[in-house]
Structures are given as C-alpha cells and as structure tokens.
Design a binder for these strands. Sequence first.
DNA 1: TCTCACACCTTTGAAGTGG
DNA 2: CCACTTCAAAGGTGTGAGA
Length: 299
Amino acid sequence: MQACGTTTSLVKLPQSSPLLPSFVFTKLQSSNTEGDFPTVLTHKGVSVTLENNSVWKQFHSCTTEMILTKQGRRMFPYCRYRLSGLEPTRMYSLFLSIVPVDQYKYRWSNSKWEPSGVAEHYNQGLFRAFSHHYSPSQGSALMTSLVSFYKLKLTNNMNDQEGHIILHSMHRYIPRLHVIPVVDGEISLPDKLAFMGPECLTFIFPQTEFMAVTTYQNFRITQLKINHNPFAKGFREEGSCSRLNRIITEVRHVAKAGDPIPDVKSEPNIPLVYRKRWSFTSETSLPVKQISLEVCFIY
DNA sequence: TCTCACACCTTTGAAGTGG
DNA sequence: CCACTTCAAAGGTGTGAGA
C-alpha cells in the first residue's frame, strides 16, 4: 500500500445531520449478522467488514467507554475494517468521523447510564473527521490489507491543534467510515467538503457506539480494557476474578466486625462498587484507609 | 468531573554482532 | 550484505490523589 503525505489530516464536516442519520441502516444491506449486530455492511456494491467485531461486541454489552484527555487518547478497541468491492485501479480516500448518537448528556448513576440534560454538542457547528494515514490509495491496495484507525486520538480540548477528534465528556458517540472515490486527477484535500457528496459511501456499525468519559465509570469496562489492550498489560493479574478478589480482601482487612462483606466466590454475580480514599489522622500521621461499599451491579 | 504525575508495559528503531 | 539480537527511548496504559 502506498503511503501518502497526508497522514493525519483533519476535515470539518458540515452539520447537515449531526445525529445518527437513520437512513444509513435502512439503506445498507447487512449480512453475517452476529446477534443484533452486522459484521458486514454492503452499499452500492462496496462491502465493509468490522474485523474486530467480537471485541467490540464484548465492550458494547457493558456500554463501551472511551477516555478523553487534553493531549489526546487512542481509542480501544479501535476501528479496523476490511474492504471489498472497490474498483481496483481507482483511488479512494478514507475518513472516519465520530458523531453524536443523540441529543442528550449522560451521567453514571446507580451503575447505569441515564440522560441528565441536553447535549452540549447540539450547538456545535462543525465536526471533525480523521483521514486514514494511507489515504488516498488504490482500491486494490485497500482491499488486500486491513484498514485500521489506531492512530486516531480523542480529546476534550476544544482548542486542539493536533488534529485529534474533539468530543464532549459524558456524551454518546458513534464512528462513521467514509469511503470517497477520488475524482480523476484531483486529490481530495482535507479542507474540502465535497467528499460528503453523492459518491461518498458511509458505513456505520452500531456495536462501535461508545460513551466519551474522562474517567472510567463502569468497572467492567476497565477490566475489559486491561484484559484486551496490550499496553494495559501491567494492570493484569493472574487468576480469574483476581482484581475483584484483591478488592474484597482489602475490604475485609479494613471493615469493622459486623459489616456485611459479599462473598465473591460463592456469589460470582454479586453487584459491587468499590471506592477508597486515603486520609491522615492528626495524632499519628499514619495513613488510614477509608473504604466504602455500595451494592450495585459491577461484576 | 477533571487533570496530572506515576509506574508499568509495548513498540520502535538504532547499534552491535556474526555468518 | 543480510539476518538476528540487544538495548534505550518514545509512547500508550490505568491508577490514585488532589482540585
């Protein structure tokens, strides 16, 4: 595949349809459906397969969360596609945009996500899209290798100049893949809006929807990230439920006699939220660990 | 809710070595 | 020259404390 100079180009999308356009699902023919989620989407003869569908499904079952940081944080899982049905000799540009799913802002309450007001992005005029680092490339090249957007970073910095995707924390988003045939002799420049024209093919996999956060809210998402992301391997521990067992052990050590401590081994589905804080007593200056338990769904 | 420093990890590429 | 190994730097993680 031929690498091009435009590695992490930035595109501004018109706000013609800020929310998830319903026509996308109805127009697309889906096949190879696993559960309720399509693994392959076909539109105008072009097929796109979500390669890491099984991972996305695992995360989606817990409501996927993606961390936003000021300097930009990569997505995990990231969007990885396989394309087919392209014209082998034609040039195509690939973009990934991330758009709001609805008009709500959310909060994590009682171990579930619930709307807490009107979305901030509702008044935002433009959305950014991320150009794939091999874009544009010949159709033949795009079909012989996987198309991964692992370089894409998410940020909550509204003044970001690095080309990261700017999102609002505690809002729901979904990635959209845009496949745009390049007009003969004309390279699609990132500052052109023409790629949203009739030849632009847009693919949306509902299982890639996620909640943007600055700190993980759902313990199960944290555990999935640690288990699947190689960069988080340092937080893995041996044995099943080891992370939760360590927490329970810690709670047992600190809890007073008579406090109800859940038995994680006899009740593997026990709901649990764990919070801890360190403080210092004035008399001894020794650290005192303060731990509280909330019974709600976690494990 | 957000930011930051931190330890721990993977990835990457340069330098060194041997056939 | 090529293949392989070693090593250090760069960068990606979640954690936990503090604002």
